[in-house]
Simulated assay, not measured.
Amino acid sequence: MAHHPGPLVSVVVSARGNSAAVPSLLDALAKQSLPAEQMEAVVVDNDPPAPVRPIQEALREREWPFAVRVLYEPTPGLSAGRNRGICAARGRYVAITDPDIRPEPEWLQTLLTAMEEEKVFAVGGRTVVEYPGGEVVALTKVLRECHGAVDWPEHREMAVWPYWVTGCNLLFRRQTALDIGLFRTDLGRRGRWMGDCEDLEFIDRARQAGHDTLIEPAAVVSHPVYRPETTLGYFVRQGAGHGVCVARMHLSVRVEPAAIQAGREAVHQAFIGLAAGWTFWDRSRAVEAARDLARIGAYRLEQGRLRLLGRRPIALAQLTTTKESN
């Protein structure tokens, strides 16, 4: 691997409401097989204004074998926090993750090796979702996918449908990311607003600009999901946020049809699932159907709002531009 002045990899983590988990993440990074002098951690404090900064308190009088920098981003939102960290990063590569993620010791080195060998823009690893406290609702595959990808390739594969990367386990070339644009701040989690798709849109936009992303299933992190995130209320809110964000994705990328599923047939199947779930006391099926109805309704409402604002999907905008140039 070629010599790079300063850190080779900047690990960027944005924290809001989960600052107490940051020291444990840094402890896990200290156990990485990648030499400490080749990495830095950029921690972005995205908590609301307060006299006492939770991250500063959590990291007080602690030391790690790599540089740790703490920045403040006043604009709430996961994308805003990550973008702040990426802009300040000094590494050739940026790895993004979350405070409660626990990477295996070979995580960073495995991502880097795949990046160097395959010469791609980004590499996403495998995220293993764990449920330490059990589940309130017995989770179907669809409900589990609300917490992250379930299906992973056995070997390296390009990140195209049906596979996708997760934003807590992703390494990419910093300069290329700056060139194509960072994470959209109207997507992704923002306080209690359960947006998402910021990582999916980022990777899709890069691919549609000619920059490939690889999945390396050997680069593993674990992601704990707790009982409050396995309830009916959670899944309905998650479905609504997901529907809004998929509608917004149309403004910058061409969205896979399989990621939409909001036509009449999808609505019909959701109502059948809801009725069958309650009739046969199949709570999991009923929750899945309720989440689907929330997702489809939010998607359609957001589509209508965007049309009223004159914001056209990218495919339509491209088609209109082509016609006007002829």
Rank of each mutant, 00 (worst) to 15 (best):
E130N: 06
V150Q: 14
E157D: 10
E154T: 10
D179L: 13
R174H: 12
L111C: 07
Y72F: 00
I180L: 14
H155N: 12
A138W: 03
L108E: 09
V160I: 14
E117L: 14
D179R: 15
G85I: 05
A122E: 13
K141D: 12
L178K: 14
A177G: 15
R144V: 06
G77N: 02
A89P: 05
V165A: 12
V128K: 12
G81W: 00
V137N: 10
R174Y: 09
G125H: 03
V137R: 10
A114F: 01
A95C: 14
G124C: 07
A149W: 02
P153I: 11
W152Q: 11
P105R: 14
A80T: 02
G181N: 10
P153M: 12
Y93D: 01
H155P: 00
A177Y: 04
E117Y: 07
G125K: 02
V128Q: 13
A122C: 15
E117F: 03
R82P: 01
V120T: 14
E73P: 00
G125Y: 01
M158T: 09
Q175E: 15
A177S: 15
T97G: 09
R174W: 08
L111I: 10
R84C: 15
M115W: 10
G134F: 05
N83F: 04
L170E: 06
P132D: 10
W161Q: 12
L182S: 11
E145C: 07
W107I: 05
L112H: 10
W107G: 01
T176D: 15
T176E: 15
V123W: 03
V123G: 02
G148S: 05
E104H: 04
Q175K: 15
T140K: 04
R82Q: 14
R173L: 15
